[in-house]
C-alpha cells in the first residue's frame, strides 16, 4: 500500500515511517499540509495519515481538499490530541475515514491500516 504521512514533528514522522515500512508499505513523508498536497499531486497514495495541527495548511483543510479532489480513492486517517471531540466530528464531516487520538500505540495504527487494505 502507498501511504503518505503528514506530520510536523520529525521524530513522530520518522517513527511512523519506520513502523509502516516494517509492514512492507510504501511510505512517503510530508512535513506540513502544503508539502503533503504537493506530494499527493505527484503520486496518489492509497492512505493519508495526517496530524490535525500543522503549519501552513492545517490537517482539517488537508482532509477537505483531498476529499474534494479524490473522493474515496484516498482513505484518510487523522491523528488528534486527546479530547478534541469537536475537531474529530468536523474531520468526519469533511470525509475523514478514521481517527486515532494521541497518545496511540503504533501497533494499533498498523492494525487499522490492515483493515483498510482488506476492504
Amino acid at each position: 500500500m502507498k501511504i503518505l504521512v503528514a506530520e510536523d514533528d520529525n521524530l513522530i514522522r520518522s517513527a511512523l515511517e519506520f513502523r509502516l515500512k516494517k509492514d512492507n508499505h510504501d511510505v512517503t513523508i510530508a512535513v506540513d499540509g502544503s508539502d503533503a498536497l504537493k506530494k499527493i499531486e505527484q503520486d496518489i497514495p492509497d492512505i493519508v495519515i495526517t496530524d490535525i495541527m500543522m503549519p501552513f495548511v492545517s490537517g482539517l483543510e488537508l482532509v477537505g481538499l483531498i476529499k474534494e479532489k479524490y473522493q474515496d480513492r484516498i482513505k484518510i486517517i487523522v491523528l488528534t490530541t486527546m479530547g478534541q471531540e469537536d475537531v474529530v466530528l468536523e474531520a468526519f464531516g469533511l470525509g475523514a475515514d478514521d481517527f486515532i487520538p494521541k497518545p496511540f500505540s503504533p501497533n494499533e495504527l498498523s492494525v487499522r491500516i490492515k483493515r483498510f487494505s482488506l476492504k
Partner: peptide, 15 residues
Amino acid sequence: KKIIIAVKTFSGETT
C-alpha cells in the same frame, strides 16, 4: 526532549 515527545505521542508497551 525527543524521548519526552515520543512518550507523549505513543502509548502502551512502547513507552
